[in-house]
Simulated assay, not measured.
Amino acid sequence: MPYSESAVRQVLGKAHGAVPVPVTVFDDETPAVANLSPALLGALRRAAIAAAADGVEFFVNGGWRSPEYQEQLLHAAIARYGSEQEAARWVATPGTSAHVSGDAVDIGRSEARAWLSEHGAAYGLCQIYRNEPWHFELRPEAVEHGCPPMYADPSHDPRMRR
Rank of each mutant, 00 (worst) to 15 (best):
G108I: 04
W90H: 15
A48K: 08
D54Q: 04
H156G: 11
H156I: 01
M160K: 04
S97N: 09
G82T: 07
E29I: 05
R45D: 02
L73Q: 09
G146E: 11
V21N: 05
A142L: 09
I128P: 01
P20N: 00
D106N: 12
D153N: 15
A48T: 08
H119I: 03
G124T: 09
R130F: 06
G102H: 11
A79P: 08
A98F: 14
S110P: 01
Y81F: 15
A104Y: 11
T24G: 13
P31F: 11
V100W: 09
L40V: 05
S6G: 02
R113I: 07
A77S: 14
L125W: 14
D103L: 11
A48R: 12
H16A: 11
G55D: 08
S110I: 13
E111F: 00
R80S: 11
F59N: 06
E141N: 15
R89G: 06
I49Y: 10
A77W: 15
V60A: 04
A79V: 02
G102P: 04
F26T: 04
G17K: 07
R89A: 13
G13F: 04
G13R: 02
C126L: 09
A152C: 04
V100G: 03
A112Y: 07
S117R: 14
S155I: 03
Y81L: 03
E132I: 01
P154R: 06
V100T: 12
R162F: 13
V56W: 09
R80L: 10
D103V: 00
L44N: 02
M1V: 10
E137T: 12
P158R: 00
R80G: 01
R130V: 13
V143Q: 07
E144K: 15
V11Q: 14
V25E: 12
